[in-house]
């Protein structure tokens, strides 16, 4: 469980201080998959970097997995409990061999050497990369690289996973691969997941969506509620998914579908039924 209340974070920049978080509040329950949506610079990355104490809480309250993130004594425990994967897979590799890269965290935490190969293999299997142990990360596709980076985090068996725009550099295949691993970790492994994205389509399968703007939350709710609200999306600085846009355009032209579809498939089904 993550509970943040009124987080404020500012840093020095050109022409004074910039307030990147301005009273951000978020609650993520155990086992929940939460998507945080917002435009570039809205503070979403700053927010999640607080979850494993990469950034120190300046003002406000933050409890993660029952630990007070403000207490310095908790930093190392937090880093173990919360695993984080970033946008660019190339920036995350420390070794030229996949298995060694995945083992890096384990070795640093002094996990017994005899245990490591097994945990590495298990983590790679979880992301569908079993058999790639001896390969070089640099020879893999973007989606594969990102899954190896994810395995490195999973090897530590964190309770909470944070994904910061992990698909934004990937091609359509890579994006599909990574998203399906995320879904599986949520549904089968019961991991608590916070996923940052600005692809509205990726938020469709979340349990809950937060819309973030200028350092604070504008709204939160079920994807169907959040992603079909044109006014809310506009205020967040996001564009609606194509089916939502079409639903509203058709409505304006006098054709109302029974509900607002979120996916292309739902839209096609409803339109074909209308005919």
């Amino acid at each position: 469980m993550i509970k943040a209340k009124d987080l404020i974070f500012s840093y020095d920049c050109e022409g004074g201080r910039h307030r990147s978080l301005d009273g951000a509040c978020i609650t993520v329950r155990d086992g929940e998959l939460v998507a945080v949506l917002g435009h570039n610079g809205c503070g979403k990355s700053t927010l999640v970097k607080h979850f494993n104490a990469l950034l120190e809480v300046q003002k406000g309250e933050l409890t993660v997995a029952g630990l007070d993130a403000k207490s310095e004594a908790n930093i190392w425990t937090l880093r173990r409990k919360v695993g984080m994967v970033f946008q660019n897979p190339d920036n995350q590799f420390v070794s030229s061999v996949v298995a060694e890269d995945v083992a890096f965290g384990l070795e640093n935490y002094g996990v017994d050497g005899s245990e490591i190969p097994e945990r590495v293999s298990a983590a790679l299997a979880l992301v569908g990369m079993a058999g790639f142990e001896r390969r070089s990360p640099h020879m893999l596709s973007g989606g594969q690289k990102q899954r190896v980076a994810l395995a490195g985090v999973l090897a530590m068996d964190p309770d909470i996973l944070v994904f910061d725009e992990v698909t934004s550099m990937l091609d359509p295949d890579g994006r599909r691969e990574v998203l399906s691993v995320i879904k599986r970790l949520h549904s089968q492994q019961g991991k608590t997941i916070v996923m940052i994205t600005h692809y509205v389509e990726e938020a469709v399968f979340a349990d809950r969506v937060y819309l973030m703007h200028d350092g604070r939350m504008l709204a939160d709710g079920a994807p169907r509620e959040m992603l079909t609200d044109l006014e809310l999306l506009r205020r967040t600085g996001l564009t609606p998914p194509t089916p939502v846009r079409m639903y509203h355009d058709l409505k304006a032209a006098g054709f109302e579908l029974p509900y607002c579809p979120l996916t292309n498939e739902e839209l096609a089904e409803e339109l074909c039924r209308l005919k």
């Binding site: 359509p172 295949d173 194509t242 089916p243 074909c272």
Partner: peptide, 20 residues
């Protein structure tokens, strides 16, 4: 070819498959 098509194209394709 491991490529997608635009969303609008995909919707048109799905509609055709659905009989429109």
């Amino acid at each position: 070819l491991h490529l997608g098509v635009s969303r609008s194209r995909e919707i048109a394709w799905l509609l055709k498959k659905g009989g429109m």
